[in-house]
C-alpha cells in the first residue's frame, strides 16, 4: 500500500495478535527484569529544586530589566503587552517610563522584542519569591535593577545526554 517515493505518506500497520500464555509469561518476566535492572541501577533526573537550580539557557525569556538611559518613553512595550502587565507612568515631566507588574506578566517577551532601542532585556532569572502582591508591582527603581537569585542555591547546568536523557553538571561559582 505504502508508496515507495520519499515524502509524507500513510502506512498501514497492524496490532499484533493477542498474546498466548507463554508469551505472557515471557513479557511478565521481561517487564519484571527491566524493573529490577532500574532498581539496581537507577537513572534519576530529579533536580533537587530549591537547593539546586538550573542555569537557564542563553536566550531564556526570564525577568525583564529596563535600561533607563536607553529608554525613549515610546510606550510601545505597554501597548504590546498581551497581559497588560506593563504600564507607563510619568517619571518626570515629559518623561514616560514603563513599570511592570509580575503578577500579570506571562514572560512572552513581546515588550523586549518591540522595544526600538533595546532598552528592555531579559535576564536568566526566573524564580523570585515575593512576600506580598504589592511587591510584585515593580517601580522604576526595582525595574532597572537586575534581580539576583538567592546565594545558597547550587547552580547546575542542564546537559542533554545520550545515556541519561538529562544530566546536571554543577557549576563552580568562583
Amino acid at each position: 500500500m505504502a508508496e515507495t517515493s520519499a515524502g509524507p505518506r500513510y502506512s498501514e500497520r497492524n496490532v499484533e495478535e493477542r498474546m498466548g500464555l507463554l508469551d505472557k509469561a515471557k513479557m511478565h518476566a521481561k517487564a519484571l527484569s527491566l524493573g529490577m535492572l532500574r532498581l539496581a541501577r537507577p537513572q534519576r533526573i530529579t533536580l533537587r529544586y530549591p537547593l539546586e537550580r538550573p542555569v537557564l539557557s542563553e536566550g531564556y525569556r526570564g525577568m525583564i530589566v529596563l535600561n533607563n538611559d536607553k529608554c525613549i518613553g515610546c510606550s510601545l512595550c505597554a501597548r504590546v503587552c498581551p497581559a497588560a502587565a506593563m504600564k507607563m507612568f510619568n517619571a518626570a515631566p515629559k518623561k514616560l517610563r514603563p513599570v511592570i507588574n509580575y503578577e500579570r506578566c506571562i514572560f512572552c517577551g513581546y515588550c523586549v522584542d518591540i522595544c526600538p532601542v533595546e532598552a528592555l532585556y531579559h535576564v536568566p532569572v526566573h524564580d523570585l519569591v515575593f512576600e506580598n502582591r504589592d511587591d510584585m508591582v515593580f517601580d522604576l527603581e526595582t525595574f532597572t535593577k537586575e534581580p539576583e537569585e538567592p546565594e545558597h542555591v547550587r547552580k547546575v547546568r542542564v546537559v542533554i545526554d545520550e545515556e541519561k536523557g538529562l544530566r546536571y553538571v554543577p557549576v563552580n561559582s568562583e
Partner: peptide, 9 residues
C-alpha cells in the same frame, strides 16, 4: 523502590 525505578528519589 518505586522512586528508584521511576527516575526519581
Amino acid at each position: 523502590i518505586a522512586g528508584r525505578v521511576q527516575m526519581r528519589y
